[in-house]
Design a protein around this nucleic acid. Sequence first.
DNA 1: GGCGTAAGCGACCGGTCGTGCTCTTTTCTA
DNA 2: TAGAAAAGAGCACGACCGGTCGCTTACGCC
Lengths: 197, 197
Amino acid sequence: MRKGEATRARIVDEAARLAAQRGLTAVSLADVAEAVGLSKSGLFKHFDSKEAMQVAVVENVMERFTAHTWTPAADLPTARERLEKVFECWLDWEDMVWSESGCPIIAFSVELDDQPGPVRDLLQHSLKRWRRTLVNQFVDLREPPLTETEAQAAYFQMKSFAMGYMDARRMMGDTDARRSATSAFVSLLERTAKAAA
Amino acid sequence: MRKGEATRARIVDEAARLAAQRGLTAVSLADVAEAVGLSKSGLFKHFDSKEAMQVAVVENVMERFTAHTWTPAADLPTARERLEKVFECWLDWEDMVWSESGCPIIAFSVELDDQPGPVRDLLQHSLKRWRRTLVNQFVDLREPPLTETEAQAAYFQMKSFAMGYMDARRMMGDTDARRSATSAFVSLLERTAKAAA
DNA sequence: GGCGTAAGCGACCGGTCGTGCTCTTTTCTA
DNA sequence: TAGAAAAGAGCACGACCGGTCGCTTACGCC
């Protein structure tokens, strides 16, 4: 049973890579099979349907995302340091881990935001958990703590900058994008931490 | 030749509507033909290929975008008023004009950012013209004028908020998204206009 | 070390894809 | 109003789609 698990993991990895480039529905089972060196029918020993494979891809991507951005930050002493580390890793995630395809989370979000179904539900649920984690960090950014509304507004900007960074770098070819994103985020932290309750 | 032009316009409109929902490549010619009440082969009297239709869709969407966001703002007296108006119309564009599908420009950007070809080239070119227009407004926001770099950084944040707004409202179901986006943008204008040279 | 089962292959299914080709109908114009 | 040109229908094509079935192979456990 060990061999099967390894193969399944390879399938999910390749499917995620292809889906990040072309979209979740646009990648065909034949594409994945060829990329992983399997026959199309062999895939069905690991997934009952294409949709089941998409679910596994979203799970895989979200796990890798939190591992890449939250794990290095979780143990830092202050909320400010944690937020700075998360944002830095977030930008790295977008242009180092996924340099050839763009961030799959953003791609999946845009693709699925009007396509109801289990894949969208899973993505939405994972993203809400992520937002909860980050909003909590913003709450702790200041003493007295930020209100929930204030923290959500700050998270809105943080995520906006992460999305804007990908667009600027990939679509617009903006070589200054990283500087713009970083300084925008630092300025956000500055203001948010300073603002009076 | 008049009738043909009207039909062609209907085709492009329907194709844009469907492409905003499902993506440019995911929408099939059969879908478009049915939506517009034509046969699949009838489409080829107006477009030589699917790609040619996609080009027309991107042209159409970008024209409507600038008409919707820039035209109402162009004649306002100050850069600040123009920018505020553009941003307000931008949010309206996303959740009123395209309430059932999400903004096609963002969708196309994410879909095409790693798919070279004439469709991507056209989109990129149009978006760069749009950025130029907005960056010029930011330059004029303050006396002494902003540097090109400062203005581009401000535009980066503006576009980020517009993208974040769509994600927050559509994917995350954030009912406060409009308030978050608007206050973030107003705060950006405030800071940018005030900052010393 | 034999054996059950998981892993994987190849052929094939009905359906849809984009795109030609031919033929008819409609529309514009001289 | 006649006739050319445009608009559009119908059909067929090869390729590819997600998915099924039966077969063989190879692994993992007793």
